[in-house]
Design a protein around this nucleic acid. Sequence first.
RNA 1: GAGCCGUUAGCUCAGCUGGUAGAGCAACUGCCUUUUAAGCAGUGGGUCACAGGUUCGAAUCCUGUACGGCUCACCA
Length: 486
Amino acid sequence: MEDKQFELRKLKLKELEAMGIDPYANGFTPEHTTKELVSIHASKSPEELEEIEDVFSLAGRVVSKRDFGKSAFFHLSDRTGKIQVFIQKNSVDEKTFALFRKLLDIGDFTGVRGELFKTRTGELTVRVRELFFLTKTLRPLPEKWHGLQDVETRYRQRYLDLIANQRTREIFQRRSKVINLIRRFFDERDFLEVETPMLHPIAGGAAAKPFVTHHNALDMDLYMRIAPELYLKRLVIGGLERVYELGRMFRNEGVSTKHNPEFTMVEFYQAYATYDDLMDLIEDLVSYVVNNTVGNTLVEYEDKKIDFSRPWKRVNIYETLREEFGPSIIEDDKFLFSKADSMRINHNGIRGKALTEIFEALVEETLVNPTFVYGFPLDVSPLARKNDSDPEVVDRFELYIYGREIANAFSELNDPIDQKKRFMDQVEMKKKGEEEYHEMDNDYVSALEYGMPPTAGAGIGIDRLVMLLTNSSSIREVIFFPHLRS
RNA sequence: GAGCCGUUAGCUCAGCUGGUAGAGCAACUGCCUUUUAAGCAGUGGGUCACAGGUUCGAAUCCUGUACGGCUCACCA
C-alpha cells in the first residue's frame, strides 16, 4: 500500500465535501491570538474565569489531540504560541462533534469560538462552542515528542521544521529582531538606508569569486554582487554622507558550516569618520544588538562563554607577529616566506598575504571574546586608505568573535590616482593566479575623481552574528533555505 | 575538491560476529466527559537510499553512485 495515511486523509477530505463542508473554507477571522489569551487570562483563578462570559475566537493548526469519546482536548497553535482547547459532546452541536471525532486530524487548521476555563491541572483552556474546519491536511506531521530531527528534511522542508521544532522558530524570530535592531541603530544615527544594484558589470568591493549571469537584451555578462561597497561610496561622493545597505551577497565559493553561497551583510559608510571611529560605532552597534536580544554580556556559545563586556580588545597584527617571531618576520622577506612555507601557507610571494595568513593561523582561534584586529598590509587591502605613519599598512580592522571574522572596516581610500594604481597592482596579481583579486574599475576611479570626502566604512556579516546570538553551530541553522544539492 | 561517518515504517530510533525486520509516536477499529508524551484492548503499515558483487542465504560483508553530516582546503 502506497502511503496509507495520505490515502486515508484524502478519503476524509471527500467525506467533508460530501457533507457540504468546504475543507479549504475562507472567511473565518480570529479575533484573538493564543498569546493574548494566555498572557491576559492564565493568571486568573478558575472562579474569576467563570465570571468572564466573553466568547473568544482563535484559529490555528491542531498540533495534538487527546480523545475521550464524549469529550476531547487538543492544542491549537498559531504564530504566537499555543493554547489548549476542550470539546464536549454536549457543548457543541451533534454534527460538529461527530465531524471533530471522525474527520479532524492533527495538522488540520480550525477556527474555534468559545469561553475560557481552567482544567483541574490549572491549564487555561478554551471550551468550544463552535468549530470550523479551515484547512484539511493530507500529510501527517512529524512526531510530537522528538520533533523533526533529520537535518536534511529540516533544511529542505523548513516548514516542517518550523511546525515541529520550537527552537527553529525562536532562531528565526531572533534573526528578524537582529535585523530590525540594526536598522533602528543606523536610522537613529541619521544613516540613509539605500539599495544598490545586485547585478554588477564588474564584481568589485571584495576578494571573492562571483556568480556570472547574462542579460539577453543588452547581450552582456553580469555578476551577482559580492559586495555593495563601490556603489555605496559613489553615493557618499554624491553627498549622502551616511548610508547603509542591508542585503544579500553572492559568492561562488565552497559551502560549509560558515559559508552559504548567498548571505546577508550590512555595509555602511560615514563621511568624516575614521576607522577608529568605526571601532567605537561597531562596538556600540553589536552591544546594542546583544543587549536587546540575549540581554546579557555573557553569551553562551557552544562550549564557551563569549564576554561582550566593554571595552573590547584591540590588537595590532604587526606587533603581535613581532612579539611572536621577532623583528625579522617584518623586516626580512626570506624569513617571512620560509616561515609561511613551513606553516603551509599559500602566499604566492605576496608579503601582505603571508603576514595576514600567518597571523590568522596563529591567533584567530584564540580570539573568542570580541577583538578588533588592525594594521592590515596594503597589498591585501586595495580599497583602504594608507596609514599616515606607515605606508605599508592601511587604516583597516577586522572584528573577530569566537575566532570568526564578523566585521571588516577601514578608512576609505579617496585618492583617485592611488586607487587607480592599486587596481593596476591587483590586476597584476590576478595575472599571477590570484583569482579573487580585484579587476580594474575605471568607472569607480572616475567617480573618485569628483571627490569623496574622508570616509570610513564597514561590512558586518549578519548570518554569523545571528549564529553567535542563537548558539547555532551551522550557518544553515540561521538561513531558512540553505543551499543543498538537488 | 579531499578524508571520515550516516541513509531501516509518515516521524524518532533498535536490529551483535550474515539466517530473510522490530519498538514508541502517528494511523485504523473499539471503550472512556478535565487529559496533557492521557489510558486500555486489538489491527494494518517496509524496494532496509540506489546499482552491482561475494554467499546456499545480505539491512548486515565488498565496490560504485546519489544525497546528507562533520573535519580540512578556499572564503565572510
